[in-house]
């Protein structure tokens, strides 16, 4: 793993980005969810996706993580187009971390087993090594005392932090976060967002779908407003959230503050 700088590079840095999505199209039957969508995430960058439900945020994240087959377009991770069917999808997914809205922890496994599963099965670590790394990561997300617990014994915030630890322990090149606080009680949202802000300061490359505008303003170097399957407006948080140029963006933000 390359050393990560602690200061984020400027947004939309020139040169080759870590992730470049271009011309992405995905439809479910007649319903076009992603329509010729372009997006870039620079190394150590943090791009936040905003937009109404159904605007395609989740589908975009799932498509990038190869959990949805796309109709057209390319998903280049370090210059390799993952949308090509001859690319090893399992290996590609192993390079990215995904955190889901509903946590999706494995209910039949302890927190520790959830976190050590991929290191042992996918990354070839032995049990001792994997458990040491998992304990370290769980301690980091504040779950040192929950290692032996099962997911249904944890609060929503704890479950989501365990799910983040499960993704982080594999040292992902890109972390995809799909509305990770939407299922949480308001008083539990803070603990998860704090953790993400910390990862951001450490230079983790992140693509985040969220409805937390204050959080977006704090962590994003680029905010993309998705509308009808495209990036309708994008720019710095100040540009998009502070002074949106397009009508749809203004309407969306106005509804949030209403």
């Amino acid at each position: 793993m390359s050393t990560r700088s602690t200061t984020a590079p400027p947004p939309s840095s020139s040169g080759s980005p870590l992730l470049r999505v271009s011309g992405l199209r995905k439809s479910f039957g007649d319903h076009v969810v992603l329509d010729d969508l372009d997006l870039e995430v620079a190394e150590h960058g943090c791009v936040v996706l905003i937009g109404a439900s159904g605007s395609g945020k989740s589908t975009l994240l799932r498509a990038i993580d190869l959990l949805e087959e796309v109709d057209d377009g390319s998903i280049e991770l370090r210059g390799v187009d993952l949308a090509d069917p001859w690319v090893d999808a399992d290996a590609a997914r192993a390079r990215m971390g995904m955190v889901f809205q509903a946590y999706n922890l494995f209910g039949h496994m302890s927190v520790l087993d959830n976190v050590t599963l991929a290191p042992r099965l996918v990354h070839g670590r032995d049990k001792r090594e994997a458990e040491a790394a998992a304990v370290e990561m769980l301690t980091r997300v504040g779950l040192a005392d929950k290692i032996r617990a099962y997911p249904d014994q944890l609060s929503g915030g704890q479950q989501q932090r365990a799910a983040i630890a499960r993704a982080l322990v594999n040292d992902p090149e890109l972390l995809l976060l799909d509305e990770v606080t939407s299922a949480l009680d308001p008083e539990l949202v803070g603990e998860v967002l704090e953790l993400l802000a910390e990862l951001r300061r450490e230079g983790m490359t992140m693509l985040i779908a969220t409805h937390e505008m204050a959080f977006a303003r704090d962590v994003a170097d680029q905010v993309c407003f998705l509308h009808e399957g495209r990036v309708h407006e994008s720019g710095t948080p100040a540009q998009v959230l502070g002074g949106p140029q397009r009508t749809r963006t203004r309407e969306f933000l106005a509804r949030l503050h209403a």
Binding site: G97, M98, F100, F106, H108, A118, V122, A167, N170
Partner: peptide
């Protein structure tokens, strides 16, 4: 299906997902 998605997102193969995630929960 979200359990399968979570397992595959971690890089588990289809077979590993069946053995380690789907079957244990199915039997329960």
């Amino acid at each position: 299906p979200s359990q399968v998605a979570a397992a595959r997102a971690l890089g588990l193969t289809r077979g590993q997902t069946t053995r380690r995630v789907v079957v244990p929960q199915a039997v329960r």
